[in-house]
Simulated assay, not measured.
Amino acid sequence: MNMDRKKELKEAYKNYRPEMGIFVIRHIETGKTFLEATNNIKGKINSDVFQLNMETFMRNRDLNKDWKRLGKDAFEVVILEKLEYDEDDQGSKDYGDELEMLYGEWQRKLRSEGTELY
């Protein structure tokens, strides 16, 4: 691999920003929903689904039980909203407060629509 390519890859890695936002794991038939906020949507979805498949999802035992009993095909994963990075962010900003606020907004919205939450 030539030096220019290595430099390009290093720069791309430094500038990589995972998508962040809100997603749900929803039981298709009942609509019962597990809501999640994260600074890495793809990574968190992969982690959650892996833990559910391994029956080690300890953050919500009811979801874990339903996933085990009904199987993964009874659920869908839906990204509800992505949070954009600030234009001037150089990669050091913490978006925890914004994600927490979005989580609260979606929690209220889902509950007002009659969605049962895990």
Rank of each mutant, 00 (worst) to 15 (best):
F75T: 00
E81F: 06
K44Q: 14
L70M: 10
G21A: 03
D88F: 00
L102N: 03
K109R: 15
E84I: 05
N64C: 10
N15I: 02
I79M: 04
E36S: 07
N64F: 05
E36A: 12
G21H: 00
T38D: 06
Y85N: 04
R17V: 12
I45G: 08
D66F: 07
D62P: 00
L80R: 04
D88S: 09
S112Y: 08
E98N: 13
S112I: 05
F34E: 10
D48P: 00
K65E: 07
E116R: 06
E11W: 01
I25D: 01
T115N: 01
T30D: 02
I79E: 12
E105P: 00
K42G: 12
G104H: 11
L110Y: 08
M1G: 14
E116I: 10
E98W: 03
Y85R: 06
E113I: 03
R108M: 11
G91R: 10
I25Q: 02
K10V: 05
T115E: 03
E100F: 06
E105W: 08
R5H: 08
G43V: 03
K14P: 06
M3F: 09
S112H: 13
Y118S: 01
D94M: 04
G21D: 03
P18K: 07
K68P: 09
E81V: 08
T30Q: 06
V77D: 09
W106T: 03
L102Y: 02
N46F: 03
V49I: 15
D88T: 09
E81N: 05
E105V: 05
M101E: 11
D4A: 07
K42D: 15
